[in-house]
Computed example of a mutant assay.
Amino acid sequence: MTMTHLPERVGRRCQEALNSLHSTVYFSPDLPDHLAGHGIDDPMAAYLAGRSAALGPAGPGVVTAAFYGFRHELVARHIPWVWTRVSHTTVVELRLRSADATLRRHLGEAALSAPETAEAAELALRAARAGDRAGRPLYSAHADQPVPEEPHLALWYAATLLREHRGDSHIAALQNAELTGLDALVSHSASRDGMPKEIVMAKRGWTEEDWAGAEDRLRARGLMDGHGRLTSSGVQLREDLEAETDRLDRAPYEALGAEGAARLTGIVGRLAGLAAANGAFPAELLAIFAKR
């Protein structure tokens, strides 16, 4: 397929819409409820199992490496213990079943069966198939899974691949910028669109001491000031990181072309907006979405 040059940020805007739709599963009780039936009652264990299951029964080192921004001790608390309770293949199946329940609840049958949803699935799958596996473990692992038959699940599946393709690409950009996973989180939290520190620490396992150490490293590089705010150099670095991620993540959206990417962005954006209106996301996340 011939690749075409895209206007700036077209791919990023498309991926943001896709990621919003994909992320509904992370704020849903469906997968934790399923896994509770297997004796897994910690929400973080459910998250780690659900997102890493496509890698196989991976150990904590592999999951820490692939996820990048999680404290290894948090990962090792749950991985590989979860695989003694449930197989990774079962978790893959339960995650898809959970996505189905979540989307049906927050979108409704009319949206799921609409021709636009099937069109978006076709576009997203075309984009996902154009991704590059090399150096992208999470994208590649999910790309090995079969494509669901129902359009709304095929769309969610493709959104998952595209989310992980950008995530794997972003890790490459972070490493090139010599930012550890925690340093990246701290600098992002201090940015305009960043998650609040309290949420990041609770979800990633970092301590106050860890966080303070990362701030010291960023200050030593001139990226953060004494009040925990990004300097102009820090702001520029975050912008450069996103631009480099755009470059590394461009192939899926170049495969669609500007018109196809815009069409996919519009349809998925409306679906994500409907999900948000029906309570799919917590209020603090909606506030971050509103800044974009």
Rank of each mutant, 00 (worst) to 15 (best):
Leu21Met: 11
Gly269Val: 05
Ile79Ala: 12
Ser189Glu: 03
Pro151Asn: 03
Ala134Gly: 14
Ala46Cys: 12
Ala255Phe: 03
Gly205Trp: 03
Ala173His: 08
Arg95Glu: 10
Gly56Ser: 09
Gly131Ile: 02
Tyr157Arg: 10
Gly131Thr: 00
Glu242Tyr: 11
Pro115Asn: 02
Ala261Glu: 06
Gly260His: 00
Arg221Phe: 07
Ala287Arg: 14
Thr24Ser: 05
Gly108Cys: 06
Ala53Lys: 04
Ala287Phe: 03
Pro32Asp: 04
Gly260Gln: 03
Gly50Met: 10
Gly167Cys: 07
Gln145Arg: 14
Asp144Arg: 15
Ala258Pro: 00
Arg163His: 13
Val86Ser: 03
Ala58Lys: 12
Thr24Val: 11
Ala127Gly: 04
Leu256Cys: 08
Leu174Ile: 05
Arg12Asn: 07
Ala258Met: 01
Leu179Ile: 12
Val10Met: 08
Trp156Glu: 02
Thr89Asn: 03
His34Asn: 02
Ala158Phe: 01
Ala134Val: 15
Gly279Asp: 09
Met195Glu: 11
Met224Gly: 08
His88Gln: 14
Thr117Asp: 05
Leu74Thr: 14
Glu16Pro: 08
Ala214Arg: 00
Arg133Val: 09
Leu74Tyr: 11
Met3Val: 14
His227Phe: 14
Arg51Trp: 08
Ala114Asn: 14
Ala243Thr: 15
Ala258His: 02
Ala173Pro: 00
Ala130Asp: 06
Glu8Thr: 15
Ala127Lys: 00
Arg204Leu: 10
Leu74Phe: 11
Ala220Thr: 11
Thr84Tyr: 12
Arg192Pro: 05
Glu93Val: 07
Phe281Glu: 02
Glu93Ala: 09
Trp83Ala: 05
Arg192Phe: 15
Arg221Asp: 07
Asp183Pro: 01
Ala54Glu: 00
Glu242His: 13
Ala111Gly: 05
Leu248Ser: 01
Arg85Phe: 10
Leu256Asp: 01
Arg104Tyr: 03
Ala36Arg: 05
Gly257Phe: 02
Leu248Met: 11
Leu153Asn: 06
Thr231Phe: 06
Tyr139Ala: 10
Pro60Gln: 12
Asp216Leu: 15
Ile199Ser: 10
Glu164Met: 12
Tyr26Ala: 07
Trp156Cys: 01
Pro252Val: 01
Arg219Ser: 04
Arg133Asp: 13
Ala190Tyr: 10
Gln175Ala: 05
Arg270Trp: 05
Leu21Trp: 09
Arg221Gly: 04
Gly11Phe: 08
Asp41Asn: 15
Glu208Cys: 02
Leu21Ala: 06
Trp83Tyr: 03
Ser113Val: 15
Arg95Asn: 03
Ile171Pro: 00
Thr207Cys: 07
His188Leu: 12
Glu109Ser: 15
Glu8Met: 14
Leu218Lys: 08
Gly59Gln: 13
Leu286Tyr: 05
Arg133Trp: 00
His152Arg: 01
Pro196Val: 11
Asp240Lys: 09
Leu74Asp: 10
Asp42Val: 02
Ala277Asn: 04
Ala130Ser: 14
His142Pro: 00
Glu242Met: 10
Ser191Tyr: 07
Asp210Gln: 06
Thr207Pro: 02
Phe289Cys: 09
Met224Thr: 11
Val92His: 07
Ser87Met: 09
Ala124His: 01
Gly181Pro: 01
Tyr26Ile: 06
His22Asn: 13
Pro115Ala: 00
Ser169Gly: 13
